[in-house]
Design a protein around this nucleic acid. Structure first.
Lengths: 175, 175
DNA sequence: CGTAATATGTCAACAATGCTGACCTAAATG
DNA sequence: CATTTAGGTCAGCATTGTTGACATATTACG
């Protein structure tokens, strides 16, 4: 039973061996299941609107960064403009997102969540927040900051700075 | 450092935890980016074999649970048998997975990773483990157990027990 | 034994969301 | 004015999920 780390216990502080190559199956699988349930929350909501996960991501970041341009959004999502456009068109058609010509450079489109868009984005954030909040409540006060540090450390090192800035620059909270 | 108010687990609910509605945008976005990079590791490897994420999941769980039946795998992955069969057929055709008739009930198929399958599964687990290991190294000794508790707490409550058992029953470690 | 239930396989079609490549317009820039 | 930049669009394709219907083999049961 080498390498067991135990799910619910306080492990003794093991002096971690210099070259421990044991696959962290536990963590790999926990992240898989956790993410699946995490996005599942939103999926159920989105169904009522005829939207998918791609719509969610676009709406989320537009709501968080009013005035975002297409190029900036593409850079966040790392998808092609064709993939983005497909879902963005639907969000605009259904009046959840509005695209205005850029104030300074009219070639740009600046994206904004409409009132309906804000409402849906908030609702989506709310169900996902609930999952985090429930976890933190069961884990203790430090879990909130610890988990943020953990998740950041799981992001590609060269991206961390960018992500940190992106998150910090987002619009604070809904209502 | 800010906001930590107690080292013990199971801390008493902090002042506004009961009705704190502020969306946890930071965590939501960190999890999104972290998961994207996490699966990205495997995606790059899989490309060389002409496999996708669906193949990865099947190969992973078959390797972890030799002798797994189709029904059990469907229950883990929560996809339809048609979706599973599409990728499973390819894994068998390319000789990464083997399906034998069940020993006791010949209606069952028991799935096993071939030697090539084990090799690929190990390689995939290795790159994903590396990401976790690097994170834990930067975060300190307790992060490994803390993150496992956090991830488990993010899973649907009624599923946690099942997942815990599933993980515990998996084949230990590769060489 | 014979029928029913079970475990699996398969065909066809469709939906969501990625991708590439090509080509178009509008606006800014030099 | 020519070029570059930002974006839109069309066509087609790949992956991976879905339903629904039907086929086959094997086991279980009355």
């Amino acid at each position: 039973m080498a390498g067991s780390s135990g799910l619910g216990r306080r492990a003794a502080p093991s002096p971690h061996s210099a070259r421990d190559n044991a696959p962290l199956y536990e963590h790999i699988e926990l992240l898989f299941f956790a993410y699946r349930d995490f996005v599942g929350d939103a999926d159920r909501l989105l169904e009522d609107y005829g939207f998918g996960r791609a719509h969610h991501r676009v709406l989320h970041f537009v709501n968080r960064h009013p005035g975002l341009t297409i190029a900036a959004l593409l850079d966040i999502l790392k998808i092609t403009k064709q993939s983005l456009n497909r879902v963005l068109k639907e969000l605009v058609a259904k009046n959840f997102v509005e695209a205005r010509a850029g104030a300074v450079d009219r070639r740009h489109r600046q994206l904004f969540a409409t009132e309906a868009g804000e409402r849906l984005a908030s609702e989506l954030a709310r169900v996902q927040t609930r999952r985090f909040a429930a976890a933190f409540e069961s884990l203790g006060a430090s879990a909130k900051e610890e988990s943020a540090r953990f998740l950041l450390a799981m992001i590609d090192a060269p991206e961390r700075e960018r992500v940190t800035r992106l998150i910090a620059s987002g619009r604070g909270r809904s209502k």
